[in-house]
């Protein structure tokens, strides 16, 4: 999975009907110091993450393994809200 921070939300009324009712969050990846990196993804939120929260995202077909994204055209999902990240001292 990748570690990222929710930095925004995408609202889209005209879309594939299977995507009705799903929330699309903009998630920017973070580095080891939790600074934002340039690359981001649009992820369906399956756990109710809020703006600014640190989250874990799963990408690829794994993203369809949640109750709300099963059999839907979704390739990235927020599947956990992060409480804490510990990096071991090298």
């Amino acid at each position: 999975m990748f570690l990222g921070r929710v930095v925004g939300t995408v609202w889209a009324t005209k879309k594939d009907h299977k995507l009705e009712g799903l929330k699309f969050q903009i998630v920017k990846k973070v580095d080891q110091e939790l600074n934002l990196k340039p690359d981001f993804a649009i992820a369906v939120d399956s756990v109710g993450a809020g703006a600014g929260e640190l989250v874990l995202c799963a990408a690829g077909s794994s993203a369809r393994m949640t109750p709300i994204t099963q059999d839907k055209p979704v390739d990235t999902v927020i599947m956990a809200i992060v409480d804490q990240v510990d990096f071991d001292q090298p």
Partner: peptide, 23 residues
């Protein structure tokens, strides 16, 4: 190499009890 760990209490129900490690 395992270089860290992520703690997440709020997550998909079927992920309950899983340990997340930074690789």
């Amino acid at each position: 190499k395992v270089i860290g760990r992520v703690w997440a209490t709020q997550k998909l129900p079927d992920l309950e009890g899983l340990k997340f490690l930074v690789l």
